[in-house]
Design a binder for these strands. Structure first.
Lengths: 153, 153
DNA sequence: GTTGCTAGTTAGCGTTGCTAATCAGTTTAG
DNA sequence: CTAAACTGATTAGCAACGCTAACTAGCAAC
C-alpha cells in the first residue's frame, strides 16, 4: 500500500506534467482557449451569472487575476458583464451564446489531444480516470474546517 | 459510459485546477520548489546525469526552458553541471546530495497539502488515484507512431 | 579550410499567478 | 449629515514558466 506522501508525490508529478502538456496542446489545436480560460468559462457557465469576486473565490484565485481572466473572455465575446442595479461597484459575469457554443464544441471535440489519447485506453482504464477526476475535484473542495485561505484576498 | 470527449473535458478541468492548486500550495509550505522544479529534479534524479537537451526532451519542453530550469536548480545547489570531455558544447546535469536529500524530504512530507488531503480518502480511492497517476503518465508517453513534436526544438 | 549541423544560451514575448495600491461605492458611527 | 471604515473591482508591477528567434561555440563532413 502506497503511503500518503508517496501517492502525493506521484500524483503531483503526474498532474504537473499533464497540465503542462495540456497547456502545450491547447495552442496546437488553434488559438482557442487555454486550459485556464476554458476552466474559467466552464465555471461561469455553471455558476453564473456571478460577480468577479465570487468567480475568484470559486476558482480560488485572487481578484486581480479574476479581473484579467474575465476581461480576456469578454474580449473574445465569450462572457459579458452587466451592472448590479443595487450596488454600483458590482457587475455580474455571464456566458454569452458564443461562449456556450464554444463550450459545447470543446466538450464534443474528438480530435483533441486528450480525447484521442483516451480512446486508446480500455473501458476499465477510462473508468479509473473518470473516478480520479471526481476525486481530484473533491480534493480541491475546501473542508469546512479549513480557512478560506486563497480566494477573495 | 462516458464518451472520450466528455471524459477528456472532465479530466482536463480536474487536472488544470489541481495543477493550479499545487502551484498555489507550493508557496505556502515554504520557499522550496514549485511543481515544475520538483518534477524537473525528479527527472534528473531518475534519468541523470543527462544533457540539457536530453532533459528538455524528457520533460517535453524547449531547450531554452530547460536551460532556465536547470540554471534555477543549480542556483539552489540541487543539481550540478559537469563538462563532457568529448564535446566542448555539452554538459551533464546531475542531482547533488542536497538535491537528493530534498527529494527524499519532499517524498516523505506528511504535512503537505496533497498528502493531507489524500489521508481523508478511503484506501480504494487512494488506489484509484494511484492507478490514475500511472495512466496519466502513460497518456503522456508519445506513441511510437507520433512525431516527437515538442521537444529538443 | 569551408560548410553544414548541433548543443546550449540569450533575448523578448505572452500567459498566469501573486501582492500592493488605488478608486469608487456602500455602510456604519457619531 | 458627515466622516470614517469597509468592500468590490481594477491597475501596476513582479516572478515563474512556457514559447520562438537568434546567436555563439563546437563538431562533423567534404
Amino acid at each position: 500500500m502506497t503511503s500518503d506522501p508517496e501517492l502525493a508525490t506521484r500524483l503531483r508529478l503526474a498532474v504537473t506534467r499533464m497540465a503542462r502538456r495540456l497547456r502545450q496542446e491547447s495552442g496546437a489545436v488553434g488559438p482557442e482557449l487555454s486550459p485556464t480560460l476554458t476552466a474559467a468559462l466552464a465555471t461561469i457557465d455553471r455558476c453564473g451569472p456571478l460577480t468577479p469576486s465570487a468567480f475568484a473565490q470559486t476558482e480560488r484565485i485572487q481578484r486581480p487575476t479574476a479581473t484579467r481572466i474575465v476581461g480576456r473572455l469578454e474580449q473574445q465575446g465569450l462572457v459579458e458583464r452587466s451592472p448590479d442595479p443595487d450596488d454600483g461597484r458590482v457587475c455580474f459575469v455571464a456566458v454569452t451564446s458564443d461562449g456556450r457554443a464554444l463550450l459545447k464544441r470543446i466538450r464534443s471535440r474528438k480530435s483533441e489531444f486528450l480525447a484521442k489519447r483516451l480512446k486508446a485506453l480500455t473501458p476499465a482504464e477510462q473508468a479509473t480516470l473518470a473516478a480520479a477526476a471526481e476525486l481530484l475535484e473533491r480534493l480541491l473542495e475546501e473542508p469546512a474546517s479549513a480557512p478560506a485561505r486563497r480566494a477573495g484576498g
